[in-house]
Design a protein around this nucleic acid. Structure first.
Lengths: 242, 242
DNA sequence: AAGTGGTCTAGACCACCGC
DNA sequence: CGGTGGTCTAGACCACTTC
């Protein structure tokens, strides 16, 4: 009587996933979801479970509820980002945008002092440098410059077609945590052209140094987002100091 | 006078506030809270309400729960908060700068639709608008435009000399959590002059709507930081959202 | 085995929205 | 006014930790 690995998935999460797929993904913004009492019947669960599933979707920004009126598909035009570490692809996926990328150039350079320290390698260590244009729904969204010790790829440049994150994960170097800095910059000529923005336009620059689960640095990435298409929306609390 | 109106505060929020004050604030890190079933009796509520209150505290990072074991006061040193809710003064103090401010203008305006909704007041409600230039070590750092219902100050404009945060705290409207959006903008003529920056320079615009411990909105503030002097540094982890 | 938090149910009443 | 989401109750069973 083998158990077979039956994964335990709470009903409310399964329901949230089902709603996300059935209604949210296929629905127009501001389209109403069935009422909670209707969903309760349709899915054969209690209303508390329906409400919990919906609360999950509200928290993730997929839907919003209006007291006395109903629950509706959220308008994804406002891109949101919380406090979690995500790749560009994950980030766009979560917000209902189709992420693609265009490689602008790959090369190998020796680590300068700053990068050497951040990546915890000797100065002069070979780093893969991957320069990409990131698009959302086919429109330029960000420029990304990743610097990763070549040794993490087994000595050769990564396949530009595949996900960088995935290739790192396969070798046990999945990014698990990161230090980030967020700043505003004016776009220079080259950046502006690549992003289809006017020269001097404001942009968000995110510098990220990621570490794997053991705390070893794996990559330093600089991402420059179009200010008119991207911003951070997050919740903060008055917590204790670090 | 005062507001004789009976505020409707959900039990679970009231309980969360009570637990925060009674147990969390006074307790040592990793000290166990009473069990949910104990709290249920002590406070005369259902277990679902106790759980909801605790869920609130977990989300705010004040406590953590361990399945099969108990719920414990969180160790502040282990809290990983990318960004915390801080006032400009606190923020500058932590960064080692001396914060000062220069009032550019105070007035009272009726709430438009957008602010009325965010602040949960009727359209036309009187809002205090405090426009200040924020300096760090005597140099312009940010422009701040705060909008706060006048009733939170007892009907008169706040003392421009004192800390806004403090004056709100004294009246029980301390900002405890907030929704924030971070974007990049190009400075206009007036903003640029006030910040001693060239016109068109990039800047970080932070829009913050803060709530008190009971979740009541207290202020909506728009802060524009000089990009050359300010940025966010934070840590992120790859965690589930929820 | 006893106790904990995690999930779920089947009810109920309320405040609010729209007709 | 009926229907909606928001809150709350009093149970129940489960998986897990702890002894």
């Amino acid at each position: 009587m083998t158990a077979g690995e039956t994964e335990i998935v709470p009903k409310y999460l399964a329901l949230a996933a089902a709603l996300e797929a059935d209604v949210v993904a296929a629905g127009e913004p501001h389209e109403a979801l069935p009422t909670e009492r209707t969903l309760q019947e349709e899915y054969g669960v209690s209303r508390a479970t329906v409400r919990r599933a919906i609360a999950h979707l509200v928290a993730s920004g997929a839907v919003y509820s209006v007291r006395g009126s109903g629950t509706y598909v959220a308008d994804p035009s406002m891109i949101r980002k919380g406090l979690r570490l995500t790749s560009f692809s994950e980030d766009m996926d979560e917000r209902g945008h189709r992420p693609t990328s265009e490689t602008l150039g790959n090369d190998v350079v020796p680590a300068d002092e700053i990068l050497a320290e951040k990546l915890n390698v000797p100065v002069g260590e070979e780093l893969a440098r991957i320069h990409r244009l990131r698009l959302a729904d086919g429109l330029p969204m960000a420029l990304e410059l990743a610097r990763i010790p070549l040794k993490f790829f087994g000595g050769s440049l990564p396949d530009p077609r595949g996900s960088l994150d995935e290739q790192l994960s396969r070798r046990g170097h999945r990014a698990e945590s990161a230090d980030q800095s967020i700043r505003a910059v004016n776009l220079g000529f080259e950046e502006a052209n690549l992003l289809s923005q006017p020269v001097g336009a404001a942009a968000l620059r995110v510098e990220r140094c990621a570490r794997d689960v053991l705390g070893r640095p794996v990559e330093c990435t600089e991402t420059t987002y179009r200010a008119d298409r991207y911003g951070f929306d997050l919740s903060v609390v008055r917590g204790a100091k670090d």
